[in-house]
């Protein structure tokens, strides 16, 4: 059994990369590996949007990620700098920036790039999924 960290740069639905990452994560845990964390960077941060509402006949990526967190304890880490630039914020950041809404909630967690550096050191494998 190995521990994996995934790095996701791909935006949901625009590119296959986000879907590939979720498929890979599901296959890895099915084989008994641990997917300790998924770090969302660049346009990958949009995977974390609470407001994601795909048509019913399409996979719901955010729900897929949430299920991974709930069922397998995977940390869903979202780069805060990449998120704020792109208009993604949790309740705390919403207040801090004086906004009436927020669109990122647990189990997605806003965090810094230091967590990516830590995840690289802490896991046996780091796999990148890009657009």
């Amino acid at each position: 059994m190995l521990s994996y960290a995934l790095l996701v740069h791909a935006a949901p639905y625009s590119e296959q990369g986000a879907l590939s990452a979720l498929r890979f994560a599901q296959a890895a845990v099915a084989q008994g590996h641990r997917v300790s964390s998924v770090f969302f960077y660049r346009d990958g941060v949009h995977n974390a949007s609470t407001l994601m509402a795909p048509p019913q006949d399409e996979v719901h990526l955010a729900e897929g990620w949430r299920a991974l967190a709930q069922e397998h304890g995977t940390e869903l880490l979202v780069c805060i700098a990449a998120s704020l630039r792109r208009g993604l914020m949790n309740a705390e950041e919403g207040v801090r920036h004086g906004r009436e809404a927020h669109n990122l909630e647990p189990p997605f967690v806003l965090t810094g790039l230091g967590q990516l550096v830590d995840a690289m050191q802490a896991n046996d494998r780091v796999i990148t999924f890009a657009p």
């Binding site: 994996y4 740069h9 990369g17 890979f24 296959a27 084989q31 590996h33 494998r125 796999i127 990148t128």
Partner: peptide, 19 residues
């Protein structure tokens, strides 16, 4: 297949993505 993809990442100590 996808299981084989995971197996390859387990076999090889390092993976590098090109895009």
């Amino acid at each position: 297949d996808m299981a084989g993809f995971v197996a390859l990442t387990a076999t090889f100590p390092h993976s590098l993505s090109w895009f």
